[in-house]
Amino acid sequence: MNSAHARIAVVGAGLGGLALARVLQLHGRRVTIFECDASASTRPQGGSLDIHADTGQVALRAAGLLDRFRALSRPEGQEWRVVDPVTATVLPVLGPSHDDDSPEIDRGQLRSLFLESLAEGTVRWGRTVTGATPLGDGSWRLLLDDGTTEDADLVVGADGAWSRIRPALSEATPGYTGVTFIETGFDDCDTRHPALARMVGNGTLLATADGKALLAQRNSNAHIRVYVAFRAPHDWQAADVEPGDTAAVRAHLLKMFDGWDDSLLYLLRHHDGAFVNRPVFVLPAPHTWEHVPGITLLGDAAHLMPPVGLGANLAMLDGTDLARALITESSIDDAVRAYENLMLPRSARAAQDCAEALGNLIPPTVS
């Protein structure tokens, strides 16, 4: 199949799938995205992302969106403050940094930037793909939960950690790392929580010790997003905490962080809303598969890694690289092979780096 006339179906309207669609449309190619969410505003999109010069910004440049990204981004958000857990004094330690040009942007803002750039009707909202089956000629049939089907010459699984497309290529499933993040946050922090706002500053505050950490991250619109990280069994809540019981989770966390400075414990005592449990899952690394005509993966569907600042950047770069291959190669199969030959080794290196970063943030317990 000549890639110029291919029916390309992308499953998942995350950053990687949107980057792929945007670059393809810039070059006159047809593409359809199937997304299970009913609309772009169905659910929150998460916190702030640092967009790296050598990955995410490469994708944004290829998508013709770099200038608009620059107008929305927060270069001051790159700042890290590492503080002593007991005294909350700022330590002469550099926080995680990828390069000198990694401005922050809210994930929702970045997603909207891509969505607004696409042709009307590109994303088919409320269409849940449950799997894909080969048709024998290199094309594939998408199976949807409403009983309908859609045929495509190329299916791209961009549907995240629990991808419904991955089983067509790989038997791998995500495994729990032993690390859990609990998320909460503060609204209107500059007015309602001025001391906290000053302590966090424009970027991210980090306190870590004894295999656990508190992070507070400045987002746009005066919001501070908080992450509590620690090692525990996946079902840690079942022991003595009723899931969804905010007061019980708070009491458990305060006991866990006993002895830390009161200004840091403020993050646990006075937040807005509930605590959201986010256990960290990853795919085996390296995650590879034998090439199969007419189907491939990108982003978390291909290489789910710990959330330490690379995932969104790599997803966008994956989408861009696949789009470029489809534009330059003469056939879909040549394009997918070229893309996978580039992406799979890159993701293997990145997975190792991310695993090391998570281990440095939350060191394994030594028995």
Rank of each mutant, 00 (worst) to 15 (best):
T180Y: 03
H98Q: 12
P85Q: 04
T55V: 02
E340S: 08
L253Y: 09
H98M: 06
A21V: 01
D84W: 13
H5Q: 09
I224T: 10
S139N: 10
Q78T: 13
L283D: 07
T328K: 15
D261P: 12
T365F: 06
D210H: 08
A213Y: 05
P233E: 07
A88N: 10
G131A: 10
R164C: 08
L20H: 12
R324K: 14
L144G: 02
V308P: 00
V276M: 08
M1V: 14
E120A: 14
S163P: 04
W80S: 10
T55H: 06
R346A: 12
C189M: 03
N221Y: 08
P44M: 02
I224G: 01
W140V: 00
E76G: 11
V228C: 08
V366Q: 14
R124M: 06
H5D: 12
G160S: 09
A302P: 11
T204P: 02
S112K: 10
V86C: 03
D235Y: 03
S331F: 07
R61F: 00
G147K: 09
R164Q: 11
E104V: 03
G273T: 02
G259I: 07
H287L: 09
L344M: 15
P75V: 08
L314P: 02
V241T: 13
T133L: 15
T204I: 09
V11T: 06
S163K: 10
D99H: 11
L144M: 15
L326G: 06
H271C: 03
